[in-house]
Write a protein that binds this DNA or RNA. Structure first.
Length: 353
DNA sequence: AAGAATGGCAACCGCTCATGA
DNA sequence: ATCATGAGCGGTTGCCATTCT
């Protein structure tokens, strides 16, 4: 035992399928439908293991297969999906009707990868090829001249129980804040109504959010921008952030010099979230019109300076992948603060399937 | 022209996960 | 709880055709 039963059986054929075998399998499945693959070979009169039959059907015989070249749209979609999902070919294939995971995987490995590389894009990260070693070193050197700020610059607020851990994290170059801790910290800030926490104005944020129908959780990651990015922020930015995990929350807003995180999941088919940083700084929002999220939506958010954060968002349809009623939500850092104090953030909102 | 190298694709292998006894 | 089994997934292999040297 231990091995697949199909592998124990003798005189099972392997390798390419003959037209006769294809016909047998096709006829059998056409008549009896897809059921127990392990019993298919016997019933269909094939000297194959069930696994082999399944593969042949799924990848070749299935009548709903598209075949032929991938269209430009399909190629773009694959690239986008791969950026979001990585090598999860089955999930990617689920978004391309008539295409199999195997087909997409092969296409990726033989064509798209090279195509991206030719464009100077790393197919693994979907970002331009960089010499990361030297880049990081360079940025470290640059930032060491600018950073760190004094503690008073970083934190204008009354110290809290979480500040020290935040501080220590900020001392790392990448200063990735422990997400759970920061979420918890933020929640407590909110609940205790502390004075504003003034984060390093040269830092900005990446947000991650898990969403289930009635349970939202926002986490925050804070990291050092590159010097180029630093220049795009106002020097006197006053970043403040709070997050609040909510369950069926009523509206929460925090105006004036505070930022706010708002999640509403009402019993109606709508939900929304807003994040806002600082009194005069950009914020952004996330929103779903459907309680059960449309699996094909992606939101592009344009966050514009406004005194009322709930007026700052606009939406654009795109791509959203769903999974188990939860979402992984990754916002790119707010960036490109322009003269009119508008900023733009593109979000990848996706769920694991 | 011929052998080597490469590319594209189909299929296999090993693993994980779900299910049910 | 444990084990057996099957389905599904992703990495990998191997075959064949094409291109290169």
């Amino acid at each position: 035992m231990g091995r697949h039963s199909c592998c124990l059986k003798q005189k099972l054929r392997k390798g390419l399928w003959s037209p006769e075998e294809d016909e047998k399998l096709f006829n059998y499945i056409t008549i009896f439908g897809v059921g127990s693959w392990s019993s298919v070979p016997k019933l269909a009169g094939l000297q194959r293991c069930g696994k082999s039959c399944r593969l042949r059907w799924i990848n070749y015989l299935r009548p709903d297969l598209k075949r032929g070249m991938f269209s430009q749209q399909e190629q773009n979609l694959i690239i986008s999906l791969h950026q979001l999902l990585g090598n999860r070919w089955a999930q990617i294939a689920a978004r391309l009707p008539g295409r199999t995971d195997n087909e997409i995987k092969n296409f990726w490995n033989s064509c798209l990868k090279k195509k991206l590389m030719k464009q100077g894009i790393d197919p693994a990260t979907h970002k331009p090829f960089l010499n990361y070693e030297s880049l990081i070193k360079e940025e470290k050197e640059k930032s060491s001249m600018l950073m760190p700020l004094s503690q008073s610059q970083r934190f204008l607020a009354t110290p809290t129980m979480h500040e020290s851990s935040l501080m220590s994290d900020l001392n790392h170059y990448n200063n990735i804040v422990d997400l759970a801790a920061l979420t918890e910290a933020s929640r407590k800030f909110l609940m205790n109504k502390p004075a504003a926490l003034d984060l390093d104005p040269l830092c900005y944020f990446e947000f991650q959010m898990d969403v289930a129908p009635f349970d939202y959780n926002l986490s925050l990651r804070n990291y050092q921008p590159t010097s180029l990015e630093q220049n795009q922020f106002g020097s006197n930015s006053n970043y403040f952030f709070t997050s609040m995990p909510c369950v069926d929350s009523s509206e929460f807003s925090d105006n004036n010099n505070n930022s706010a995180f708002l999640v509403n999941e009402s019993s109606s088919n709508s939900s929304s979230m807003s994040v806002y940083q600082g009194a005069n700084e950009a914020g952004f929002s996330w929103k779903s019109e459907n309680k059960y999220l449309d699996p094909l939506l992606q939101f592009q958010v344009n966050a514009v300076k406004s005194e009322e954060f709930n007026k700052t968002s606009s939406w654009q349809e795109g791509l959203l992948l769903t999974h188990n009623n939860s979402i992984d939500f990754n916002a790119c850092p707010l960036r490109s603060l322009s003269e009119d104090h508008s900023t733009e953030a593109n979000f990848d909102v996706f769920q694991h399937l």
